[in-house]
Design a protein around this nucleic acid. Structure first.
Ligand SMILES: [Mn+2]
Ligand SMILES: [Mn+2]
Ligand SMILES: [Zn+2]
Ligand SMILES: [Zn+2]
Lengths: 136, 136
DNA sequence: TTTTAAATTTGTAATGATTATATTTTATAT
DNA sequence: ATATAAAATATAATCATTACAAATTTAAAA
């Protein structure tokens, strides 16, 4: 799914597209690096000098309510965000701390044990050392 | 895997079995409810009035280094611990906040994309509403 | 058994991420 | 242009975790 216009996309999901909201959402779809609040803030503060970190928090929480971003909690005390809401796995490299995406096959989950449970979210993440770091 | 004697198990893993360490480990294997530090502390403080929360933190971090417990980070700001180090999935109910175990089939992961990556940890968790809560 | 040293536990302070609150700024409607 | 609502900002508060130093316990040495 490619998002042509961030403003339209926000509107379509019931979010008034302010400058800050557009830039934060654009940052997420252009940099698929699963950034933290701090990363987003530091990067965008260059373009928007008045930006407040609170706004980044508020905006991401709003995005989550409206289901256009997902939260990634791999490490405690390091919350990351992802504008790709499709089901996919994440691999975090413990060397370079990059977070990679990888495909997941839903029906391959053995979920019989959870018969009678209503599953709303599925999260899969691996940790280890990425190809890049292994070659060094 | 059933652990007969907590003290022996700790020794076998290079951990000197102090009273606090034994009790904390026993709590984990007897209560498979994936407790938080706070839960462990509150429960054990009844038996060990001198217990310090710092000790619970220190002990769990030691257990993690020695690979006899795993950390579960489903929610940001709610770190839980599991003495079952085998690969299995977790289901967290958003109603009663219980965390259930469920089996996972390792080879069912589609990991071709991660060829060349060294995978050290695999984590799978789902969120939703458990059977119990759905029946109310 | 006493003495000494090391390991462990404890209490308190510091840190850092997130949220709460109040104020200011911006957008919208009359 | 004025009033009202929404959004952004600055600052303070909260809370989980860690850092640090002192006290206690355990183990080793004498
Ligand atoms: Mn992703
Ligand atoms: Mn478990
Ligand atoms: Zn790497
Ligand atoms: Zn439930």
């Amino acid at each position: 799914m490619t998002i042509i216009n961030a403003g339209d996309y926000l509107k379509k999901h019931g979010i008034k597209p302010s400058l800050q909201r557009i830039r934060i959402f654009e940052y997420l779809i252009k940099n698929k690096n699963h950034p933290t609040v701090d990363t987003i803030f530091r990067e965008l503060a260059k373009e928007i000098p008045t930006l407040s970190k609170t706004t980044v928090y508020n905006t991401l929480n709003l995005f989550m309510e409206k289901n256009i971003v997902k939260v990634i909690t791999i490490e405690e005390n390091e919350t990351r965000y992802d504008a790709d809401t499709s089901l996919h796995g994440h691999f975090k490299c413990t060397e370079c701390s990059r977070v990679y995406d990888f495909d997941l096959d839903v029906p391959k989950f053995k979920e019989e044990i959870l018969k009678g449970f209503e599953i709303q979210e599925r999260h899969v993440y691996f940790k280890g050392i990425c190809k890049d770091c292994l070659l060094n």
